[in-house]
């Protein structure tokens, strides 16, 4: 089998039914872990669950035996729970790692840390991912490797000037091995961005004005995310602006800012599990 082109998904189809099943499992696993700690970024992980699942399970070549494995970079570091549970499922992280999440003796914190298996960079401070990813994508090209860099951004960090410094450079350099996904859940820490910062929208136009190609999709429809990347052109960095719901799948979490960080009580936990099961049916 010949090696695929840069950034072209190596699977030519994506099983959306299987994806739904995985995302249910991931969300339930995150809820389970939330019962071990007082605070955990549940809602930010739920808004990008389908995005991260599609990257890991549909788009990325990340088998370490590959000559040029792709890179996953979680720029919205506070969404890392979804990355942790996928890495656990793949055996990159252990159950013991997840059991010690945010506990003494463990190696997983509320933001990803470089050096932990499967983690490409330390993030958490917003606005760093675009620069790191641009540097990585350039390094892959300069060294003649065919890796793609998959970058997950929050919408909030698209308010950081550094994100646009990087976006401009990535386009200047024509880095078409850089594929970014914006988790547009419309909530920054304080408020709805469409209300507090109406000029933030439309976001896709801004990326296009900076020399990117891109599309806007439903960020909870895995097939839309997959197809967007599958059908993209070449010569420019590519962005998928993903419209999402913060806390997706749990009624009392959806669009409610306090769930940015809070862990559910045991009663809330049971309700959340029931609702997720219902949605998946």
């Amino acid at each position: 089998m010949s090696s695929p082109d840069v950034g072209v998904p190596y699977r030519n189809s994506f099983d959306t039914v299987a994806a739904r099943g995985r995302c249910l499992t991931y969300r339930r696993r995150i809820l389970d872990i939330s019962q071990q700690v007082t605070a955990l970024h549940v809602a930010p992980a739920f808004s990008c669950t389908e995005i991260v699942d599609t990257i890991y399970n549909g788009l990325m070549r990340w088998d370490t035996r590959e000559a040029s494995p792709d890179v996953f970079l979680m720029s919205k570091g506070h969404g890392c729970m979804i990355q942790y549970v996928i890495l656990e499922e793949r055996g990159v992280l252990s159950r013991a790692d997840l059991d010690l999440y945010c506990k003494a003796g463990g190696r997983l914190g509320a933001h990803p840390d470089y050096g932990v298996p499967g983690i490409a960079a330390s993030t958490g401070s917003l606005g760093h991912g675009m620069g790191l990813a641009t540097g990585m994508a350039l390094a892959e090209r300069l060294q003649g490797r065919e890796s793609a860099i998959y970058l997950v951004l929050s919408d909030g960090e698209c308010q950081e000037g550094s994100t646009w410094e990087g976006a401009m450079m990535a386009a200047n350099l024509g880095l078409d091995n850089l594929i970014a996904f914006v988790d547009l859940n419309d909530f920054s820490g304080l408020e709805r961005m469409s209300e507090g910062h109406p000029a933030f929208h439309p976001l896709l136009d801004k990326f296009q004005a900076f020399g990117w190609e891109g599309v806007e999709v439903n960020g909870h429809a895995a097939e839309e995310i997959f197809e967007a990347v599958d059908q993209r052109g070449r010569g420019k960095p590519f962005v998928v602006v993903c419209n999402t719901v913060k806390g997706k799948g749990v009624s009392y979490m959806e669009h409610v800012p306090i769930w940015h960080y809070r862990s559910p009580s045991s009663e809330e936990y049971r309700q959340a599990c029931d609702e997720l099961a219902e949605v998946a049916r």
């Binding site: 620069g131 540097g135 990585m136 350039l138 390094a139 410094e165 990087g166």
Partner: peptide, 28 residues
């Protein structure tokens, strides 16, 4: 020319890119 990169008047990305380049094996 490929190993001389000018980010323009954009110092944050000068440093960020150097980090990403180093993480992928270059010495910037």
């Amino acid at each position: 020319p490929q190993r001389f990169i000018n980010t323009g008047v954009a110092e944050q990305i000068m440093i960020g890119m150097c980090a990403g380049m180093a993480q992928r094996g270059l010495r910037p």
